[in-house]
Amino acid sequence: MPPSQRRRRPVEDEESEEDARPRQRRNQGDSDAEPEEEEEASEDEMDVDARPGQSADDQLAKKLVRYAISCEYSRTVIRRDGIRERVLGNQGRSFKRIFALAQIQLKDVWGMELRELPVKEKMTLQEKRQAMKSNSQPKLGSGAYILSSTLPKAYRTATILPPSKTPSADDEATYAAFYTMVISMIWLNSGELSDQKLKRYLTRLNADQNVSMDKTEIILKRMENQRYVIKKTDRPPVGQDGDLMISWHVGPRAKEEVGLDGVMGMVREVYGEWNPDLEKKLCSSLNIKERTAEEEDEVVEEDVSRRQTMDAE
């Protein structure tokens, strides 16, 4: 190595050491000047460590809310297995906790809640016999949910909750009116309506061929897929001659979404003027407990006030 380079090296080393010393002093001074910021940062880290699952649970709850709304928009049943697969992933064991958080968000923000559909009933004679033969315990829950409104009754009017605009408001209103009418006819026939009688009713209503722009068969099939109605086919025993017996029953979605209140409301709307005698006949047809005189008067007064409001609008 040339002597000139040997002479320069100590100088460069001294300069680098001198440059390093003030930087170290500055770092030490900074740390001495800002002790509170470091303490605050450490406290924040301690808070995060103390509640590691809170933000993750909130995100999963919001994801469950989005999934529930998307399913309900197409009237697809929200199944527990679907929630575990598409929302929770490897957090399947936290279903109850995430479900409870999602319920809070749905009620506080959207005015809705997830309600579990009733367990599928044994309707045909063959199904009832198989259930009696089997020793299996009945299911406590169906594991299927739909979204239901939690708004007060005063806010569940058509002006506040209009029909969905998908595919169009008119088509949605027509479909809702049709399935409510069919469900009401089934319920008023003790919960079971033969296929022949249903066709006869639809013929009287001029709805046996088409409902709006769709075929009646397509609409009934859609109602069946969305679990508004259940279509049962009883075949004759093996070796015996006979015709197929087709019957229609109220589906689990109809029981939760429409319910007896929806059926009674539609009957009152169709009849127009309402009185206590008609209320007794309606309760008898639906096999429910008759209301007291005060409750009947409240129903009549409510119907009159509702009609006056509609006329004023």
Score class of each variant (00 low, 15 high):
Lys122Val: 01
Val77Glu: 10
Met112Thr: 04
Ala102Arg: 00
Glu116Val: 08
Gly111Asn: 11
Leu117Thr: 05
Ala100Phe: 04
Glu85Phe: 08
Phe99Glu: 03
Leu101Ile: 02
Arg115Gly: 08
Arg80Leu: 08
Leu101Gly: 09
Phe99Met: 13
Asn90Leu: 05
Gln126Asn: 08
Gly82Asn: 06
Arg115Cys: 14
Lys120Tyr: 08
Arg84Glu: 15
Ile78Asp: 09
Asp81Ile: 02
Ile104Trp: 07
Leu114Pro: 14
Glu127Arg: 01
Gln105Lys: 14
Ala100Gly: 10
Leu117Phe: 07
Arg86Val: 00
Val87Met: 05
Val119Cys: 14
Arg129His: 07
Glu121Asp: 13
Arg93Gly: 15
Glu116Trp: 06
Val119Gly: 11
Ile83Val: 15
Leu106Phe: 13
Leu125Ile: 00
Gly92Asn: 06
Glu113Lys: 12
Gly89Lys: 03
Trp110Leu: 15
Arg79Val: 02
Val77His: 02
Lys122Leu: 09
Phe95Glu: 05
Thr124Phe: 09
Glu127Lys: 00
Thr124Cys: 11
Gly82Met: 02
Gly111Ala: 08
Arg97Thr: 10
Lys107Asn: 12
Leu125Gln: 07
Arg129Cys: 03
Gly89Ile: 03
Glu116Lys: 02
Pro118Trp: 06
Ile78Cys: 07
Ile104Tyr: 13
Arg86Thr: 04
Lys96Ser: 14
Phe99Gly: 05
Gly111Val: 08
Val87Thr: 03
Val87Ala: 04
Gln103Leu: 01
Met123Tyr: 13
Lys120Ala: 12
Gly82Tyr: 03
Asp81Tyr: 01
Arg86Glu: 12
Lys107Val: 13
Gly111Thr: 05
Pro118Glu: 06
Ile78Ser: 05
Lys96Leu: 10
Arg84Ser: 13
Val109Tyr: 14
Leu117Lys: 08
Asp108Pro: 03
Pro118Cys: 06
Arg97His: 11
Glu116Cys: 13
Ile78Arg: 03
Lys107Phe: 12
Gln103His: 05
Arg93Phe: 11
Trp110Ala: 12
Gln126Leu: 10
Lys107Asp: 15
Asp81Asn: 09
Met112Gly: 00
Glu127Ala: 12
Arg80Phe: 01
Leu117Asn: 07
Gly89Asn: 06
Arg80Lys: 13
Thr124Val: 10
Gln126Val: 07
Glu127Asn: 00
Arg115Leu: 14
Glu127Gln: 13
Ile83Trp: 03
Arg129Ile: 11
Gly82Asp: 14
Val77Trp: 02
Leu114Ala: 10
Gly82Thr: 01
Glu85Lys: 09
Ile78Gln: 04
Glu121Gln: 14
Ser94Glu: 06
Gly111Trp: 10
Arg84Cys: 14
Arg79Ser: 15
Lys120Glu: 11
Gly89Asp: 01
Gly111Glu: 09
Gly82Phe: 05
Lys96Trp: 04
Lys128Phe: 04
Arg97Asp: 01
Ser94Leu: 04
Ile78His: 11
Gly82Ile: 01
Lys107Ile: 11
Gln126Lys: 09
Lys120Gln: 08
Met112Pro: 04
Lys122Asn: 15
Gln105Cys: 09
Gly82Gln: 05
Arg115Glu: 15
Glu85Ala: 08
Pro118Lys: 01
Gln91Glu: 14
Pro118Val: 02
Gln126Thr: 08
Trp110Phe: 15
Glu85His: 10
